[in-house]
């Protein structure tokens, strides 16, 4: 394969940044959450790329653990969103300001 590693890394960085944009600018909690998943996947991609180009399988094991973590995180996170929605009748995080001073 002739794709240079830094192309993949640059692409992963771009993907990560797109995820960040989603987290910071979207007001819908579910979409924010999906953006977090995009960020995680960007990192995963970088891991797999390094694993491939360094010939070391540990990077892929790491991705495995990140996926486990992501599954747990999504389950809990979505549960939080559901209970927030149940209590506040909204999933717009600009309206959820319980931590305001």
């Amino acid at each position: 394969m002739v794709v240079p590693l830094y192309h993949i890394l640059a692409f992963a960085g771009l993907l990560f940044t797109i995820g960040v944009v989603g987290v910071l600018f979207r007001r819908n909690a579910i979409i924010v959450f999906m953006s977090v998943e995009i960020m995680l996947n960007a990192v995963n991609l970088a891991f797999v790329a390094f694993s491939r180009y360094h010939g070391n399988v540990n990077g892929q094991v790491f991705v495995f653990f990140i996926m486990t973590l992501a599954a747990a995180e999504v389950a809990v996170g979505l549960a939080i969103i559901v209970s927030l929605f149940r209590n506040l009748r909204t999933s717009d995080i600009s309206e959820i300001r319980l931590m305001k001073h």
Binding site: V23, L24, I96, M99, K100, H101
Partner: peptide
């Protein structure tokens, strides 16, 4: 305390 806006995205951007 103005920083404490309660907006999670403000906090996230500070983390970033």
């Amino acid at each position: 305390r103005r920083i404490q806006s309660g907006l999670i995205q403000h906090y996230a951007s500070i983390i970033l």
